[in-house]
């Protein structure tokens, strides 16, 4: 827990006159799972999109692996992009490709990789994401929401990235599916030494996987820390979030498990 893989400093995002982030600072350390929480409209997804470069910030810097994304262009930027994987909320799978072909898309960037190896590696990733063999040849429209998320994760993991961004990975999954997904993320983190940036609303997920939690409120990261730290914060919104009836249910079940 030493090196910061992502450093966000003084970030400002605004759409027209609506300021979403102002003076936002955030660190993600190597090998940790960071959960980002915040009320609706506090810009959790905007933050994710800004870090991966889909959204240009109005001010501030985003440093990934110590390099400022704004100053990078062309090849250097592509090289950075290959070191992270993004799983979008609904999987964002290419609808004209089967699941296996979707996972093969990032692998096509590798020079010299034979089509057979590519196919086998894609099948391995699909299996690692917890999908059955049958899912390989299915098209996104034939998959359930949970399977789409898993396929999206398989594609995000295709190049063995160092950072994985997950946008609401467990939203819309049933509790068993969500639980399995939590385990999968922790397992993959341990195996691949991933750093995970996870936007979530799911308190059970926060309990089950996240090493640290960052709370977005008042246009910045209000506080970061472990779950135990969060329970001590006396900001009204944070208190309400982590002490509300749902939060209590999540903490008690978590204690019951241990």
């Amino acid at each position: 827990m030493t090196e910061n893989v992502i450093e966000v400093r003084g970030l400002r995002n605004q759409f027209g006159r609506h300021v979403v982030h102002d003076q936002l600072d955030l660190d993600i350390r190597r090998g940790e799972i960071l959960g980002v929480v915040g009320g609706s409209g506090t810009g959790k997804s905007v933050l994710l999109r800004t870090i991966v470069g889909l959204n240009r910030p109005a001010a501030g810097t985003v440093r990934v692996f110590g390099q400022d994304l704004k100053t990078l262009s062309g090849f250097a930027r592509e090289a950075i992009e290959r070191r992270w994987g993004v799983m979008f909320q609904n999987g964002a799978l290419f609808s004209s490709l089967s699941v296996r072909e979707n996972v093969e898309v990032p692998l096509q960037a590798i020079p010299g990789l034979s089509p057979e190896s590519r196919k086998a590696l894609a099948e391995l990733k699909v299996s690692m994401a917890g999908l059955p063999w049958l899912a390989n040849e299915k098209y996104p429209s034939d998959l359930s929401g949970g399977m789409k998320k898993r396929a999206g994760l398989a594609r995000a993991l295709a190049l063995d990235p160092e950072i994985v961004f997950l946008d609401e990975p467990t939203a819309g999954l049933d509790p068993i599916g969500a639980d399995a997904f939590d385990h999968l993320i922790v397992e993959l983190r341990d195996a691949l030494n991933l750093s995970v940036f996870m936007v979530t609303h799911d308190l059970d997920t926060l309990h089950a996987c996240c090493d640290r939690i960052a709370v977005l409120a008042e246009k910045r990261v209000l506080t970061t820390g472990t779950m135990a730290d969060m329970l001590k914060v006396d900001h009204p919104w944070v208190h309400e979030y982590f002490h509300g009836p749902r939060a209590r249910a999540a903490t008690t079940t978590e204690r019951g498990k241990e």
């Binding site: 391995l124 699909v126 690692m128 063999w133 049958l134 195996a191």
Partner: peptide, 14 residues
């Protein structure tokens, strides 16, 4: 350990 993890995750073709 990592190789074992991949071994366990290897897909079984139907």
């Amino acid at each position: 350990g990592f190789v074992d993890m991949v071994r366990n995750a290897r897909p079984e073709p139907d």
